[in-house]
Computed example of a mutant assay.
Amino acid sequence: MSKDTVAVRVDPDLRQRLDKLADAFGQTRSSIINDALRQYADHQEWQVTLIAERVKSIEAGEEVLISHEDVLAAFDKRFADKQAG
């Protein structure tokens, strides 16, 4: 697979940490960075997709929304019940 070069500036501490991880895993610093960026991109894409799906379902009236005050009241009751029992 061909790869593009992207220049990223990191502080010396992070570079040392990446080098230690690369040594520990028997990989290159570049492969460690690629793995980390891939995991980050996967997670962010998942979140963006999930948010978009939720917005659509809310707009379609398919979700029951609970107010912040109701959530706080439910937590207060739950913790009060635990303390009492």
Rank of each mutant, 00 (worst) to 15 (best):
M1L: 02
K3Y: 06
K3A: 14
K3Q: 14
K3G: 03
D4N: 13
V6W: 08
V6I: 12
V6K: 01
V6M: 09
V6F: 08
A7K: 10
A7T: 09
V8I: 13
V8M: 01
V8T: 02
V8A: 00
R9P: 00
R9A: 07
V10F: 12
V10R: 02
V10P: 01
D11F: 03
D11R: 05
P12F: 06
P12S: 11
P12L: 12
D13C: 00
D13E: 11
D13N: 02
L14Q: 02
L14C: 01
R15E: 12
R15S: 04
R15N: 10
Q16C: 09
R17V: 05
R17D: 03
R17S: 09
R17C: 01
K20E: 13
K20I: 04
K20V: 03
K20F: 01
A22F: 05
A22Y: 02
A22S: 04
D23M: 06
A24I: 05
A24S: 10
A24T: 02
A24F: 08
F25V: 00
F25D: 09
G26A: 08
Q27E: 11
R29G: 04
R29V: 15
R29C: 06
S31C: 00
S31V: 02
S31H: 03
S31F: 03
S31R: 05
I32T: 10
I32E: 13
I33S: 06
I33F: 12
N34R: 15
A36Y: 03
L37S: 11
L37D: 06
R38N: 13
R38P: 01
Q39W: 05
A41Q: 08
A41L: 14
A41G: 04
D42K: 14
Q44K: 14
Q44D: 08
Q44Y: 09
E45S: 09
E45R: 10
W46P: 00
V48K: 15
T49M: 11
L50N: 13
A52G: 02
A52D: 07
A52E: 10
E53G: 14
E53C: 07
V55N: 09
V55L: 11
K56C: 10
I58M: 10
E59R: 14
E59K: 15
E59N: 14
A60R: 13
G61L: 07
E62V: 02
E63V: 12
V64M: 05
V64G: 00
L65P: 01
I66M: 12
I66P: 03
S67M: 04
S67Y: 03
H68C: 05
E69Q: 08
E69R: 09
E69M: 01
D70S: 09
V71N: 02
V71K: 07
L72K: 09
L72D: 09
A74T: 02
F75R: 04
F75L: 10
K77W: 04
K77G: 00
F79G: 03
A80P: 08
A80C: 07
D81M: 11
D81T: 12
D81A: 15
A84R: 14
A84V: 03
A84L: 13
